[in-house]
Write a protein that binds this DNA or RNA. Sequence first.
DNA 1: TATAATTCCTACTGATTTACTAGGAATTAA
DNA 2: TTAATTCCTAGTAAATCAGTAGGAATTATA
Lengths: 138, 138
Amino acid sequence: MKLSTKGEYGVRAMVFLAERYGQGPVSLSYISQRENISLAYLEQLVAILRKAGLVESVRGAYGGYVLARDPRSISISEVIRPLEPLAPVECVSDESQVECCEQRETCTTRLVWEKLRDSIFQALNSTTLSDLCSDRAS
Amino acid sequence: MKLSTKGEYGVRAMVFLAERYGQGPVSLSYISQRENISLAYLEQLVAILRKAGLVESVRGAYGGYVLARDPRSISISEVIRPLEPLAPVECVSDESQVECCEQRETCTTRLVWEKLRDSIFQALNSTTLSDLCSDRAS
DNA sequence: TATAATTCCTACTGATTTACTAGGAATTAA
DNA sequence: TTAATTCCTAGTAAATCAGTAGGAATTATA
């Protein structure tokens, strides 16, 4: 049930951007240094977040990334979802359309996985980037 | 955030035992066939559950395993906990006593991991084996 | 215009973990 | 005595994780 570093680093990078929202682009080399995350690895994660529409890039010197929306409107589940699967088991995931097993209707353990999935979603949906900013004013 | 098969198989095996609680020992070869789980792998998982005090073994021919307690008193979190870590990130786990980072007090992302951990615990603590039995009478 | 700082893209890789397999010893009901 | 079981340890192929590496494209500034 552990989160991978993708999700963890992704959230840390996004909170970092949230704390500087409205102050122009922030470069990944800066985030990399301050958050102690490998630059090349961070590039890959942020590329995913950009394709998910959560950040926008400014290319060239003095460029970087900015949040695509107000940090109060971006939930943690939105950040983690593109980076790694959120559902605890395959068969209660809305993304994967694969039919996981034939006992779908009669499966009893499924009950607890759905409950678990919902409570994970609830916790991450109800927390926004601004909730995690050290400067809570933004 | 995916559960490994250890947790998933462990819960399935325990629910299987719960549905036959009070009917004598159930062999792993039977569970293995019915739940379609490799016998040798299942042996290893059940060994962990036995050491955790959740099941008791009956050795020899016509032996097997029985639940150590009433299925209404065994929560799913008790089953999964010995099989795999439940906390989403290292630094909000009560088991590991390792100091994960020096920013423990000022860490802002920690807030959401604690909230996530608590809601995972809550979901799994509040569900028992008997809640997942197809024969809900037991 | 040249340079440095950046994003962007793809391929590779070592280490770790996962999900088993394999083999056998000990126990016990029939 | 046999067959069915638990019990124990070691090994292992495949997948995943957590990056590295190398370079192309873009752009503000000197």
